[in-house]
Design a protein around this nucleic acid. Structure first.
Lengths: 118, 118
DNA sequence: ATAACACATGAATGAATGTTCATGTGATGA
DNA sequence: TCATCACATGAACATTCATTCATGTGTTAT
């Protein structure tokens, strides 16, 4: 790491830092999963759906109507949310009700809000 | 909501829920900013850079060498991280040192890790 | 001044993504 | 059984995005 430059300016031991980086860095699979998780939060439609589900369990057409979007668009995004284990679903007759899978969703969105509020 | 269907299955008052959804939903600008923030975390290269900066303030070429990527690619991503106020930079001679802007970064990535670890 | 170094940046390219449209699937009710 | 409702899903299209390549900017040293 930076064998021939930057060393003079560095006060810390570069080799020790490099070792710590390599030991602390998550493995390839965890990094991929982590990025995939945050990608799910990186879309306003999906965030809106999650905020709707904060209030109550709801079926697809209700969510679509509240957000003023097509059933197909909502259904596609619910699929993404479910694959990320952020929502659960259960069938009740013809309808399928979605709800938040756990409390990580609130926590993560809350931390994000804290950040953008500076 | 769902004026002509689903009402029979719903135990809660739909109008009250709809009102709560509308009052709790962040405004358009906050939703956009929130999605933009999480998009930044939605890339393995940027997550890697953040993990590197967990250990120490570092210049661009050091980060590039540790992650085995080109200086240009790292520089482009550092720009994204800086625009999201996740990292800061300061010039020291020819080099520019980057560091984490605040502790929200650790918190958010930590919450993400908690989630993928189920 | 000029060469060399560290970094930033614009254009280009290939890959990933959100929505729409059309259609498929499963459940209900006549 | 058949029509209808609620939802899922595949293909298509437009948009966004990460990296590469080439070049520009600012600093240091000779």
């Amino acid at each position: 790491m930076a064998e021939l430059n930057a060393m003079a300016e560095t006060t810390l031991d570069s080799k020790a830092i490099c070792e710590r980086v390599l030991t602390e860095m998550p493995d390839e699979e965890s990094l991929y999963d982590l990025a995939e998780l945050f990608k799910v939060f990186g879309d306003t439609t999906r965030i809106r759906i999650l905020y709707v589900l904060f209030e109550a369990e709801m079926c697809v057409c209700d969510i679509a109507q509240i957000l003023n979007m097509t059933q197909s668009a909502i259904s596609h995004q619910l699929r993404v949310l479910k694959q990320a284990h952020l929502v659960r679903s259960r069938r009740v007759g013809k309808q399928i009700y979605y709800s938040l899978a756990d409390d990580h969703v609130r926590t993560i969105l809350g931390q994000g809000m804290d950040h953008i509020d500076e």
